[in-house]
Simulated assay, not measured.
Amino acid sequence: MKAKYFRYLLKFKRPGGTSRGVLREKETFILEFVENGKKGIGECALFRGLSYDDRPDYEEKLQWLCENINLDPSHLKKELNEFPSLWFGYEQALLNLRHGENLYFPGEFTEGKSAIMINGLIWMGDVQYMEEQIREKLEQGFHCIKLKIGVDWESEHKILQELRGKFSAETLELRVDANGGFSKEEAEVVLQQLADLHIHSIEQPVKAGNWDDMRILCAKTPTPIALDEELIGITDLAEKKRLLETIKPQYIILKPALVGGFAGSDEWISLAEDLNIGWWITSALESNIGLNAIAQYTFTKKSPMPQGLGTGSLFVNNFESSLQLDNELLWFKTR
């Protein structure tokens, strides 16, 4: 087997507002395997400023992977333990090499027989922009909307109040993602305000790494808390277990590119289910290559909850997609 990679810069159609600032482009790396005339493709979806493997020797390690691609997978896994997005790309390219076409996890989803329900994502921005996005998602038929919050809580709170005034919790599920935007004291107030509005859950109310604060919040929160960034960088199984047993969150959010690919996600899911912790899967600004693989993997997990899978429509120069959104349902195009 031979392997090579190339760097690719995805450009946003419109700058995306996050708690980490405004994103205009997203760097990623595409990995290609060739064996006996067959090709496998995967995406090493590095997320600068967020990924555990955002480090100076990243491309060096990617080059090492290409040069040592025929080593035993268990040896490679050990070598790439601190490079979750590289392992994620490796898993995809290997699966794609085996199954061909745009396939990673063939089945009912890739046969076009079943779809995945997803949430509509609302990007941060001024009130008008956020309201415009919400209107669009509601018109498209979404029953679950996720809003990024934590930049201007006063305005964001007003938007949530207006939404809840128009739509009951039974009609519209609302999730919020704070990306660690609040202090523990602020979070205590916000959690109650969210509960008053019957918000489904809040992701990462305080910055990752504050296990004690998060544990205290999760123990008495009136609004379910989901860990997101908290999972990044924890690669040891015993440490994963310790995190979940210490904090006892209501949910965890799995981004395969950030938590060690499908193998890493499987570990987290198994631990969470043993502890009666809920979970769902989200994408993390991958190109259509990585998103396609994540969607196929997600379907195999059979979660009944709306998943956080964007459709790649954020970028002007994305790769061709096998995925198609019909209202809130994500389908695989068979033709």
Rank of each mutant, 00 (worst) to 15 (best):
E245L: 01
P224K: 06
S114D: 12
L95S: 05
L174T: 08
A219F: 08
T223M: 04
N36R: 12
L62M: 08
I149Y: 14
I118V: 15
N292A: 11
F167I: 07
A263I: 12
A195P: 03
G233C: 06
W280L: 07
I289F: 00
Q192D: 08
A219E: 15
R175Y: 04
T311P: 01
F109D: 04
C44L: 03
E230S: 15
P224E: 05
H99G: 03
Q161V: 13
E101Q: 10
R14A: 02
E173M: 10
A272G: 13
Q192G: 01
E203F: 08
T300V: 06
H99D: 04
G209H: 12
S270Y: 05
S19C: 13
K39Q: 06
G107E: 04
F262S: 08
G16A: 12
L76A: 06
S287H: 02
L95R: 12
F262L: 06
W211D: 13
D53E: 08
E328L: 09
Y8I: 00
R242A: 08
A238F: 09
K241E: 14
K241C: 05
E43W: 01
T18A: 02
T311A: 01
T235V: 12
K301A: 00
A169H: 11
E139H: 14
S51A: 14
A219T: 03
W87L: 11
F88Q: 02
Y251N: 02
R335M: 05
